[in-house]
């Protein structure tokens, strides 16, 4: 096993442990952890399987494995960012509704007193 491989495996394991720890501690919700678990698994697979990247990039027809990694990861990051924007928009909407309800309820309580 080469040095870079050991570093890669160690880094992926630490990342996996960190993601799991965040979920266990309740700081990361399961539905958002899904993508992180998937990416750490992928990282671990490719750090063990050395020829894997060459194999997959050949399969798709990308000449350099590095280009394959960049293309795929940037694409995935874009999609995930879009998803997060949708999540934020929905939170924004809910937050607004809550605030409005609270204001109306405060007024009602004051009137009843």
């Amino acid at each position: 096993m080469e040095r870079i491989q050991i570093i890669a495996i160690a880094a992926s394991l630490v990342l996996t442990f960190y993601v799991v720890r965040l979920i266990v501690k309740g700081k990361l919700r399961e539905e958002y952890s899904f993508i992180w678990i998937c990416s750490t698994i992928l990282l671990i697979i490719f750090s063990f399987w050395r020829g894997g990247l060459d194999f997959v990039s050949n399969l798709i027809g990308i000449y350099l494995p590095a280009n394959f990694v960049f293309t795929v990861s940037i694409f995935v990051i874009f999609i995930y960012l879009l998803h997060l924007s949708v999540v934020v928009s929905s939170l924004h909407k809910k937050n607004k509704k809550m605030a409005q309800e609270i204001a109306l309820m405060k007024n009602k309580i004051e009137n009843d007193l």
Partner: peptide, 8 residues
């Protein structure tokens, strides 16, 4: 008067 708890 309606007081909003956060700035909307």
């Amino acid at each position: 008067v309606l007081d909003l708890p956060v700035n909307l």
